[in-house]
């Protein structure tokens, strides 16, 4: 009985994904009417996919246009092994999907734009955890500060690209003051964060990016600052750290472990 139900559900699900496989025999009534209703059901499914993706990827949608995006949503939904109950998570695999999406081979920056948008989307729905305050750091002596391991706030993402995805993204914002670049080439390093309610991204210097990346990899603050100075001679930790804290990029510091006590 359970097997039979599972088979019927499987047949129905396959029919929603494959237009050639209408499961009309599962239903009473004239097959033509059933086929029409199933087509409506499929239309709803695609429309829900479209809306879920458009919520997370408004700039990708603007870049490719609505009809292309609709077709993309259908292709993604049908090819994607989707096990997530939350449609807000539905688009998680889109950046990788776009990287191999043949119709966009001429727009190779699209996957990185999507990576940036997904990071912003995740930050939007992310944690409200209180970020670290200056007072916490001000209380540390120099050695403890150098040895501290800093956890970045869970809403923070570091996105680097060989394409001008920051400019492309900003040109599509409602209050945009920049226009689209005439050529999408040109790399950038971006910090995604959510200062309070609104997810944002800003350009990072090479030093900032290297330091935050190093902290994200679990290195201590002393190492992170050295990495920053190695890629950017004028990197100023005295200006950068208060700025990062003001932006809420740091969550907490793990006190340094004593030697021989590595976790």
């Amino acid at each position: 009985m359970a097997d039979e139900l599972a088979a019927i559900q499987r047949r129905m699900a396959d029919g929603l994904l494959d237009t050639e496989a209408d499961p009309v025999e599962l239903f009473r009534g004239p097959p033509a009417a059933t086929a029409k209703r199933l087509a409506l059901y499929r239309g709803n499914l695609t429309a829900n996919w479209h809306r879920a993706l458009a919520g997370a990827y408004p700039v990708v949608e603007a870049l490719v246009g609505e009809s292309f995006f609709h077709a993309l949503a259908r292709r993604y939904g049908r090819s994607h092994d989707y096990r997530e109950g939350d449609l807000n998570r539905f688009g998680a695999a889109l950046p990788d999907f776009l990287a191999d999406f043949e119709p966009l081979a001429g727009q190779p920056y699209m996957a990185d734009v999507a990576r940036l948008e997904w990071a912003l989307h995740v930050a939007h729905y992310g944690s409200d955890a209180a970020p670290m305050t200056l007072a916490v750091l001000a209380a540390l002596d120099p050695q403890s500060l150098a040895d501290a391991r800093i956890r970045l706030h869970p809403n923070v993402a570091l996105v680097a690209s060989t394409w001008a995805i920051g400019r492309i993204w900003r040109a599509h914002q409602p209050e945009a003051t920049e226009t689209l670049p005439s050529d999408p080439r040109g790399g950038c390093r971006l910090i995604v964060h959510r200062p309070r309610w609104r997810a944002e991204c800003r350009a990072a210097t090479a030093g900032e990016f290297a330091a935050l990346q190093s902290l994200a990899n679990g290195e201590c603050l002393g190492d992170a600052l050295e990495r920053a100075a190695a890629v950017q001679a004028d990197f100023d930790p005295g200006g950068a750290i208060p700025r990062w804290l003001e932006e809420g990029l740091w969550l907490a510091a793990t006190p340094p472990t004593r030697q021989g006590e590595h976790p």
């Binding site: 050639e20 409506l40 239309g43 709803n44 009809s67 292309f68 966009l104 599509h172 689209l180």
Partner: peptide, 22 residues
């Protein structure tokens, strides 16, 4: 529901041509 008016039963209805800001 979101797509109630849209029937979807044509497997090859779309040729992909990006027509947006890109």
């Amino acid at each position: 529901c979101a797509g109630q008016a849209t029937k979807d039963h044509d497997p090859n209805e779309w040729k992909y041509v990006a027509k947006g800001t890109c």
